[in-house]
Amino acid sequence: MALDASARAAVTVGRPTGELRSLWLDPATQSRIWAHFADVTPLDDRTFDWVARGPAGGEYRWRTEVADAVSDDVRWSAMEGADVPNTGLLMFRPAPGDRGTELHLDVRFDPPGGAVGEAISKLFHIAPAEIARKALYRFRALALTGEIPTTEPQPAARNGGTDR
């Protein structure tokens, strides 16, 4: 039996829709906002290679393609042969009170069954909702400040990134 892991998340960003959509579609943005989950390599403006690391050193690979836009929304899906078939939809809506834009992210992962599906389900045990929330959090930080905050040690001329 295949696992169906889907998640939804939303965030409000104090920026106009057009600016946010352009930032999301920037190939360099994708590798930054999904870094907590997978290595994302842009192949062109619409196609990305993904590598997610799972339990016991497993790697799961797929390629996604952004669909032709028929609205402000952004849709993507994994191409044939993906280890983890998936789809995504990012919707942009005006925020109440002229406070920017609401972003609604829906992602769905459909890993295969069997031993591979079981290993992937461990990867996604906490993941679908957390993956979506964290991606939007990282995107919001990038849109508002130009960077994504981290708790990784920052050496800044210190010995191993720690103060002594």
Results as ranks from 00 to 15, higher is better:
L105C: 01
R140P: 04
D72I: 01
G117M: 09
S121H: 14
R46V: 08
R140C: 10
F92D: 03
P42T: 06
V51F: 03
E118K: 15
P153T: 12
P155M: 15
G161W: 05
P16F: 08
I131D: 02
H36S: 14
A157Q: 14
L136A: 07
P111I: 00
T101Y: 07
P85E: 11
A119I: 13
S6M: 15
P85I: 10
R8I: 01
P85W: 12
R138D: 13
S77F: 01
F48T: 05
A69V: 00
L90K: 00
L136E: 02
V84L: 09
E102Q: 06
D106N: 14
D26F: 03
T47E: 05
S71K: 01
E147A: 15
A132M: 11
W34Y: 14
A95N: 04
A143Y: 02
D4W: 11
S121C: 07
N86F: 06
F37A: 08
T145A: 12
T41V: 13
D98M: 12
D26H: 11
T101Q: 07
T162M: 15
L3Y: 09
G160E: 05
A141W: 10
R75L: 07
T17Q: 10
V51G: 01
D44I: 00
M79K: 10
V116M: 09
N159S: 10
H36R: 12
D39R: 08
R164Y: 07
P16H: 05
A35H: 13
V70W: 00
T145W: 07
V107F: 01
T29G: 13
S121A: 15
V13T: 02
S6D: 10
A143T: 02
S121V: 06
D110Q: 15
A115D: 12
Y137W: 14
A56C: 04
G57C: 06
A7T: 04
R133N: 11
K122V: 11
F124H: 08
P42L: 03
G97T: 09
T151Y: 09
S31T: 07
L43W: 03
W24C: 07
R75I: 00
F109Q: 01
V51A: 13
R140N: 13
D163F: 13
R63Y: 00
P85G: 04
P153Q: 14
R99S: 08
A156Q: 14
A119K: 15
A69S: 07
T64E: 05
K134W: 03
V74K: 04
T47H: 02
D44E: 02
T41L: 06
W62I: 00
E19D: 13
D4V: 14
E118V: 10
I148Y: 06
A132Y: 01
F109Y: 13
L25K: 12
A135N: 05
G114M: 07
P112C: 09
V66S: 03
R108C: 00
R140L: 15
R53V: 15
D98Q: 07
D26N: 15
S6Q: 13
R75M: 05
G57L: 10
G113T: 08
D106K: 12
F48I: 06
A141Y: 03
A9H: 04
G146D: 04
E59M: 05
A156E: 14
L103Q: 02
P128M: 11
P85Q: 14
E102L: 09
L23W: 08
A115P: 09
R46T: 13
L20M: 04
A69H: 02
A82Q: 03
M1H: 12
V13Q: 02
D98S: 10
D68P: 03
P153S: 06
